[in-house]
Every structure is written in structure tokens, then in C-alpha cells.
């Protein structure tokens, strides 16, 4: 059930071979797993970690864009940006409610974000320093997120898959508004076009890193694929993204910052140059430009909202007591 009754409940399972085989058979038969179903602890743990990380990414992802709300160049751009940011907040909430179906409270996973224990997508530890960055974020970062999220709509865990369907429906606007921003800049002055190129230069590689380590290095890959949580490998998704995105860059008249980028006739996709994994791991470990600031911003928001949560709960309690008193009279 979607219930706090489940939070902290005894979900222990006796995981003998027969139990695991029966579970795998359900997965193989493309049956969806629902909240109260018996599931291996490993499956539950993987999902809690992944969905919470995904939720945190949506929430932290509001910060680089929030930085530009007051400076958006027109009212139309400002309205679109606010609507996009609101969507990302919504995505975070859909995902937190999916994680709660696994018996973990939103307060608990939030606490893990605030303490720095939980991870979120490293891409949001890069700064959005020009208006063109807002275009590049929508085009590339949301574009990469869409690539990742579409196969998750068929993930074996029902509530996660359903949340992803809602999310995917909303993402397309995010990518298009970003691309449109860059189209405008590329049709503008030399300076504006240079600004767009600069944004592509800075966001290209981090966007490719969003798909995670190479399949040969990935620690969670194979078991997640067996459980049909992950349905397409990191490298395959990355290749699909590059192949979809390069022609879009060409249309803008921008140059993808990869001298080794080459069309591969055989695979009918682009081969790319080496990714700087040292940079990736350094940002994951907390050394990105914005890691500290992002966590501080989330903690500040949580702390400064405490009185609101307390007041709302106190008011609800008081109203309840009043109702009970009136009923008793």
C-alpha cells in the first residue's frame, strides 16, 4: 500500500533459492512488482537508492535554473523557466512518493540528501553562468534525462514506472524551450552565437557523463538489468543520445567540442572521443564547482521551512482537537 503504515514495517523475506527463482520468473514474464509484493531485499534496496537519487536530482536540478528566473531576458522566457522549475519540483515529489511505497519515509531520504550521504546527478554541480546555459541545460541535460527516463517507463517496479510516464510527458517541453533559446541566440549577433557555443563547450561532456560509467566499469549494471530496473545499458543510451543530438547541434551551426567525433557506418551512430572520468569521479566525490553551494541551498531551504511545517502540523492538530470536542458536546 501507499501508506506510512508500511514505513518501518517488517518487510523481511526468507530468501531461499526457490523464492528468488519465483521472483525472477515474475520479472522475466514482464509482470510488474507492486508495493506490497514480496521482493528480495536487494531489489528493494536498489530501488530505494535509485529512486531517491533520482528524486534528489530533480530537486537539486531546480537550483541552477532558479538562479536565472529574475534575469530571464523576456516575460515569455521567465514564465517558461518558472513552469519548468515547477515541473522539476513535481518530478521530485512523484519520485519521493514512489520511494515511500518501498517503506522509507520522505523525511528519511530528504535527511540523507541534506547530510550529503545520498547522491544526486553530478550535472547539477556545474554552474549556470550565462543565459545560454539555460538553453544548453534544457536541450542537453533534459535531453539526456529523457533518454534515461524513457526506458524507465517500462521498469519492473510499478510505482517507479508510473511516475516515469508522468515525468516523460512533461520533459519534452523542457528540452524544446532550451533548444529554442539556443536557436534565438544562434540567429543573433556574433557575440550571442559565441555565448551559445561556449555553453555547448561546457555542457557537452558533463551531459555525456550523465549516463554513468562505461558498461565495463558499472557496478550496478548487470543485476539491475536482470531485475529489469535498468533496461538499456549506459553506453547504449549515451550512443543514442549523441546520435540524436549531433544533428541538432549542426542545425544550430554550433560545433560539438569533440575532435574525435566520427560517424560510424557500421553501427549507424557516432563514435566519441574519450570521456574524462577523473573529472566525473572528482565531481561525484564532492569536488565540483557547486557541490558545496547546492547542499547549502537545500539545507537552508529545509531549515527555514521548519517553522512552516511545525505551524501546519500544529494547526492540523488543533483543528482535529476542536472537531473532536465539538463532536463530544
Amino acid at each position: 500500500m501507499y501508506s506510512q503504515g508500511l514505513i518501518g514495517a517488517d518487510d523481511s523475506t526468507h530468501e531461499d533459492e526457490e523464492f528468488l527463482a519465483r521472483f525472477q520468473a515474475r520479472i522475466d514474464a514482464e509482470e510488474k512488482i507492486e508495493p506490497n509484493d514480496a521482493m528480495p531485499q536487494g531489489y528493494r534496496k536498489t530501488l530505494v537508492r535509485q529512486i531517491a537519487q533520482h528524486a534528489h536530482s530533480e530537486i537539486v536540478g531546480m537550483l541552477p535554473e532558479g538562479n536565472w528566473v529574475t534575469r530571464a531576458p523576456t516575460l515569455k522566457r521567465k514564465a517558461a523557466l518558472i513552469a519548468k522549475i515547477q515541473d522539476e519540483g513535481g518530478h521530485g515529489l512523484y519520485l519521493y512518493s514512489a520511494v515511500e511505497t518501498l517503506g522509507v519515509s520522505r523525511e528519511q531520504v530528504t535527511q540523507e540528501l541534506l547530510s550529503g550521504k545520498a547522491k544526486y546527478s553530478s550535472i547539477f554541480n556545474y554552474p549556470a553562468i550565462t543565459w545560454a546555459d539555460i538553453g544548453a541545460i534544457g536541450w542537453l541535460v533534459d535531453g539526456a534525462a529523457i533518454m534515461n527516463q524513457i526506458p524507465l517507463c517500462r521498469c519492473s517496479y510499478g510505482p517507479y514506472a508510473r511516475a516515469m510516464v508522468r515525468v516523460c510527458k512533461e520533459e519534452s517541453f523542457h528540452q524544446r524551450q532550451g533548444y529554442e533559446i539556443l536557436m534565438m541566440l544562434c540567429a543573433g549577433s556574433d557575440e550571442q552565437k559565441a555565448m551559445a557555443q561556449d555553453a555547448l563547450n561546457r555542457w557537452w561532456w558533463p551531459s555525456l557523463m550523465m549516463f554513468g560509467p562505461h558498461d565495463s566499469e558499472s557496478t550496478h549494471g548487470s543485476q539491475s538489468e536482470k531485475w529489469k530496473i535498468k533496461r538499456i545499458s549506459n553506453d547504449d543510451l549515451r550512443r543514442k543520445f549523441v546520435t540524436a543530438t549531433v544533428p541538432q547541434a549542426e542545425f544550430l551551426g554550433l560545433e560539438v567540442p569533440d575532435p574525435e567525433l566520427k560517424w560510424n557506418e557500421k553501427t549507424e551512430s557516432y563514435d566519441i572521443g574519450p570521456i574524462d572520468w577523473d573529472e566525473f569521479w572528482s565531481v561525484v566525490k564532492g569536488n565540483g564547482v557547486m557541490n558545496k553551494e547546492r547542499l547549502e541551498a537545500r539545507n537552508k531551504a529545509w531549515d527555514e521551512g521548519a517553522w512552516v511545517r511545525e505551524a501546519a502540523n500544529a494547526f492540523a492538530l488543533k483543528s482535529q482537537e476542536r472537531e473532536q470536542l465539538e463532536a463530544a458536546q
Partner: peptide, 17 residues
């Protein structure tokens, strides 16, 4: 889906948003 709220009135508003 679900929503967090201290009372029913805010729950409707949050669900709307």
C-alpha cells in the same frame, strides 16, 4: 499518486499543484 500535507485543505491544494 500521493502527497504530504498536514490537513485536508492543504492536501487538495498540494495535489492540484
Amino acid at each position: 499518486g500521493s502527497i504530504h500535507s498536514a490537513d485536508s485543505e492543504m492536501a487538495v491544494q498540494a495535489a492540484r499543484d
